[in-house]
Amino acid sequence: MSALNSEIVIVSGLPRSGTSLMMQMLDRGGLPVVTDQLRQPDPDNPRGYYEYELVKKIKTDVSWLPATRGKAFKMVSQLLYHLPDNERYRILIMERDLNEMLDSQEKMLRRLGQAVAPREVIRPAFESHLQNLHAWLDRQTHMRVLRMGYSQLVTNPDPSIRAVGDFLGIDLDSVAMRQSIDPALYRNRQSRSETGPAL
């Protein structure tokens, strides 16, 4: 793990894109992960969220960040803009068909008793967000990025697992990572083939 000792690994993406699955895979694969387990497993994420509450405070508090060097934490994509540029990051961006993500988010919002935005409003907003995000990431010299398709990860995991190991430059337990994947949890699947969000 020495190559990563000075860098911070971040698993990012939009909600319901497979970030919790990737965190679980890294954890079981042998990479230390940073999570407080405050957000408990629920029907939307029966294997847990792998979240760390301080991540949500990144806009006002970055004091916790140096302690995460050599480890991985999860951060929703909109917060990536607030990462200070005096650290180096390797960011795994999870990508999933936008309609699948929105279907899943809407179910989760309803379960949480939250308002559900009209699809004709939220879909273009997410598309624009992703376009801006990737254009911005391309300009960040202190961030290395690997984009990972959720559908491919679940249906044909071996190439994705190898890609993660190569990207991080470390030996991960690929068998344990593969065992983390339960295709039964790939719900809200679109009938058509996944091509990823329009970027």
Partner: peptide, 19 residues
């Protein structure tokens, strides 16, 4: 950017991913 990031932020907040 704010025009589009506003609805995104609202959705992420509703889902519990940001404050």
């Amino acid at each position: 950017t704010d025009e589009t990031e506003g609805p995104v932020a609202d959705q992420l907040r509703g889902l519990g991913y940001i404050e």
